[in-house]
């Protein structure tokens, strides 16, 4: 069942600059993680996506980007799934 998700994660990691990715379900539980990402952050990612979605309820699925000097984290929720991608360097 998770083969498809595994394939997607492998595909994501082949993109240059991407160091890790994590997927969580609607309960904030980790359904997949690859690369430099921690399964423990799945709940937080999902909570962030839920909170940010409340800012503009009419517009669906905002893309959230957290940046520091050397890496960025991109979060998006679609349906029940929340995905977060860690990228080295800023966008």
């Amino acid at each position: 069942m998770e083969k498809q998700l595994d394939r997607v994660m492998d595909e994501v990691l082949t993109v240059p600059g991407i160091s890790g990715c994590i997927f969580s379900d609607k309960q904030g539980l980790c359904i997949g993680v690859k690369g430099k990402a921690s399964a423990e952050s799945a709940g937080i990612m999902s909570a962030i996506a839920n909170q940010v979605a409340k800012l503009e309820p009419d517009n669906k699925s905002p893309i959230i980007v957290y940046e520091n000097d050397n890496q960025s984290c991109i979060i998006q929720q679609q349906g029940d799934i929340t995905a977060a991608i860690y990228k080295t360097g800023i966008i």
Binding site: S24, Q27, G28, L29, C30, E40, S41, A42, G43, I44, S46, A47, N50
Partner: peptide, 12 residues
């Protein structure tokens, strides 16, 4: 309907 993952993250 609470976020279970978020509760688990409180452990630390």
């Amino acid at each position: 309907s609470c976020n279970v993952g978020h509760i688990l993250a409180l452990e630390k």
